[in-house]
Design a protein around this nucleic acid. Structure first.
Lengths: 172, 172
DNA sequence: AGAACCGTAACCATAGTAGTTACGAATACC
DNA sequence: GGTATTCGTAACTACTATGGTTACGGTTCT
């Protein structure tokens, strides 16, 4: 646990959803499969992806053939979209402060600092906006072409079932 | 409280230390004065600045004429230096994961995601490294020249004494 | 009907943040 | 030397965020 992982989980999960869309048409990835591959609890996956659904990035289907799919073109989903949907604000927020706290000494410092933090947020936003899910999965294909054989992992959707062992073998 | 404010406090405090150095030579800012202006508890200021001292960014002196001073040229202290000293890592860290969790489906995705996150961190680092304390305080002088009169704030070092009212009038 | 999904609420353990108190050490001033 | 002022730090506390876990209900496919 610990250290906010929603963004990482969101990116990982949506990337897996996209890969699934192109790999096995008609059968979207399930929360359990994502959870097993990302290494978190299925409920957490649903919570994160549920938030992304509210933002219009993904869709879910219940039932035996259910799971998660992107609801936009992968080229239209940037890391910034995912971040913004999952986190209330970018890092480098100046904490709200009582204005009378500063004095003759440095009356404008709070505003200058707020501007500096805004610059940092803008730089970050710019970078995150420039990376799309389509690119990420593309890089993944590139990397994969260099690969040798991999061990198979049959019946992926079944793995990570909470009732099986409960911990998924994840250590804190 | 809440939302990690160490970075903001560190930047604010060091900027005030620099302003003090150039404003009232020989009399560094005290933790109490910084705490009052930043809006946090003096002990918290000492904790944050204590960490920055370990990183070699500031120095402290005890006693009636004591307080905090920069131990480097302000042009040699960047926001990245302050961030790195106060936080164990930049945001956008991929959580450590068991390697066997991923499978044939997307074996290289974890590495690709780690690279993507590294890119984000690099972009952030680049921006933070480009801003120095000297610049920040310079902007503050610029803004100040536009100012009209300000109310004075006599005996700043005394304000914010915990024994006075305990809360400093700070609301959560 | 039953199995396999998602949807959510509820509860809990853990950990990080910062306020608060307390006491000790160093320094300046009388 | 005594006192006031400052930093240094440990200890305790309250609050909050995070995410694991369980439980139960609703859909959809077979």
């Amino acid at each position: 646990m610990q250290r906010n992982s929603r963004f990482a989980v969101g990116v990982h999960a949506t990337a897996l959803a996209l890969i699934a869309q192109t790999q096995r048409k008609g059968k979207p990835v399930t929360s359990n499969a994502i959870a097993a591959m990302v290494g978190v609890h299925p409920v957490h996956v649903r919570r994160v992806l549920g938030t992304l659904r509210e933002a219009g990035l993904v869709e879910s289907q219940p039932g035996p053939l259910g799971g998660w799919e992107l609801s936009r073109q992968p080229s239209e989903i940037s890391l910034y979209d995912i971040y913004l949907a999952l986190e209330p604000e970018l890092p480098f927020e100046m904490p709200a402060r009582a204005p009378e706290a500063c004095c003759r000494f440095a009356p404008d410092l709070p505003q200058v600092l707020a501007d500096v933090m805004d610059d940092a947020k803008r730089a970050l936003q710019q970078h995150l906006s420039s990376v799309t899910l389509e690119q990420i999965v593309g890089w993944q294909w590139d990397a994969r072409s260099d690969d040798t054989a991999r061990q198979s992992c049959s019946n992926l959707d079944k793995t990570g079932k909470p009732s099986s062992n409960g911990t998924l073998g994840i250590q804190s």
